[in-house]
Computed example of a mutant assay.
Amino acid sequence: YKLALTLITILAFITRFWHINHPDQVVFDEVHFGKFASYYLQRTYFFDVHPPFGKLLFAFAGWLVGYKGEFLFDNIGDSYIANNVPYVAYRAMPATMGALTVPTVFLIMWESGYSLPACIVSAGLLLFDNAHIGQTRLILLDATLVFFMAVSVLCYVRFYK
């Protein structure tokens, strides 16, 4: 059980962090969430209809590496390298959340009373899911949402167990 959990966790981190620096340009909705994180780091007032938690986590990741939020993620395709943006630190936060979701699924199954092979298959389905890997390698909020939903389910199972 512990060996399987350890191996699955290591594989999850490898698959989420492999070449996380590619592409080195603003992609898809990184335009929005990177911009919000920059606004938080600049302490600039802005209006957003969504809850701030995920964007505050991105701002925290930027703050940890000493980033001041100068780049505003204006256009898809803007270069991170040319603008000196610590985009790998920003992308590391959702990658970590995505990687931790995989062992959380394993633990949900284990705590629910399923066999070791069933736990491995369940976690493996998420481990090698291209959509999940893709979503958790970019500056997007999905990894945070999915991780905390999985942790909530795990807590629910543990509470009623």
Score class of each variant (00 low, 15 high):
residue 89 A to H: 06
residue 111 E to K: 11
residue 60 F to L: 14
residue 132 H to V: 08
residue 89 A to R: 02
residue 91 R to S: 05
residue 136 T to F: 12
residue 41 L to S: 04
residue 113 G to T: 04
residue 33 F to K: 01
residue 134 G to C: 09
residue 143 A to K: 03
residue 104 T to Y: 10
residue 140 L to W: 14
residue 51 P to E: 12
residue 143 A to N: 09
residue 36 F to W: 15
residue 129 D to E: 10
residue 135 Q to E: 12
residue 149 M to L: 15
residue 108 I to H: 08
residue 67 Y to L: 06
residue 55 K to F: 05
residue 122 S to Y: 02
residue 115 S to K: 15
residue 112 S to E: 10
residue 66 G to D: 11
residue 63 W to K: 04
residue 89 A to N: 06
residue 137 R to M: 14
residue 27 V to Q: 14
residue 97 M to F: 15
residue 66 G to R: 09
residue 92 A to L: 10
residue 38 S to E: 05
residue 146 V to W: 02
residue 53 F to Q: 14
residue 66 G to E: 13
residue 57 L to Q: 01
residue 47 F to I: 11
residue 149 M to K: 03
residue 94 P to L: 15
residue 132 H to I: 10
residue 30 E to Q: 14
residue 29 D to K: 00
residue 50 H to C: 09
residue 62 G to L: 07
residue 79 S to C: 03
residue 65 V to I: 14
residue 102 V to Q: 06
residue 151 V to C: 01
residue 89 A to D: 04
residue 76 I to M: 15
residue 62 G to C: 09
residue 81 I to W: 01
residue 48 D to H: 15
residue 131 A to L: 11
residue 91 R to Y: 12
residue 80 Y to E: 03
residue 48 D to I: 06
residue 116 L to C: 04
residue 108 I to M: 10
residue 84 N to M: 05
residue 90 Y to G: 02
residue 28 F to E: 09
residue 37 A to N: 05
residue 59 A to L: 04
residue 89 A to S: 10
residue 133 I to G: 08
residue 46 F to P: 01
residue 68 K to I: 11
residue 110 W to C: 06
residue 116 L to V: 07
residue 121 V to Y: 14
residue 85 V to W: 07
residue 121 V to I: 15
residue 71 F to P: 02
residue 28 F to H: 09
residue 33 F to R: 08
residue 134 G to R: 14
residue 134 G to K: 10
residue 26 V to Q: 08
residue 72 L to H: 13
residue 56 L to N: 00
residue 107 L to H: 03
residue 130 N to K: 08
residue 91 R to N: 07
residue 50 H to N: 11
residue 131 A to E: 12
residue 53 F to M: 15
residue 115 S to H: 13
residue 60 F to E: 01
residue 117 P to V: 08
residue 120 I to P: 02
residue 121 V to M: 13
residue 134 G to V: 06
residue 65 V to F: 11
residue 86 P to C: 07
residue 122 S to N: 05
residue 80 Y to V: 02
residue 64 L to M: 13
residue 103 P to G: 03
residue 123 A to M: 10
residue 91 R to P: 04
residue 117 P to H: 12
residue 122 S to R: 01
residue 70 E to H: 14
residue 150 A to V: 08
residue 45 Y to A: 15
residue 26 V to F: 07
residue 144 T to M: 12
residue 130 N to R: 12
residue 87 Y to A: 00
residue 52 P to M: 07
residue 40 Y to R: 06
residue 31 V to C: 04
residue 102 V to N: 05
residue 81 I to Q: 05
residue 85 V to Q: 09
residue 130 N to G: 15
residue 133 I to K: 11
residue 98 G to S: 13
residue 58 F to T: 02
residue 140 L to T: 06
residue 120 I to Q: 00
residue 50 H to A: 12
residue 125 L to S: 00
residue 35 K to R: 11
residue 64 L to G: 06
residue 33 F to S: 01
residue 148 F to R: 01
residue 151 V to S: 03
residue 79 S to M: 03
residue 105 V to H: 11
residue 48 D to T: 09
residue 131 A to W: 11
residue 135 Q to M: 12
residue 109 M to D: 00
residue 66 G to V: 09
residue 90 Y to W: 13
residue 126 L to I: 15
residue 82 A to R: 07
residue 115 S to C: 10
residue 116 L to Y: 04
residue 84 N to Q: 12
residue 63 W to V: 00
residue 78 D to E: 11
residue 77 G to K: 08
residue 49 V to R: 04
residue 137 R to S: 14
residue 112 S to M: 10
residue 58 F to C: 03
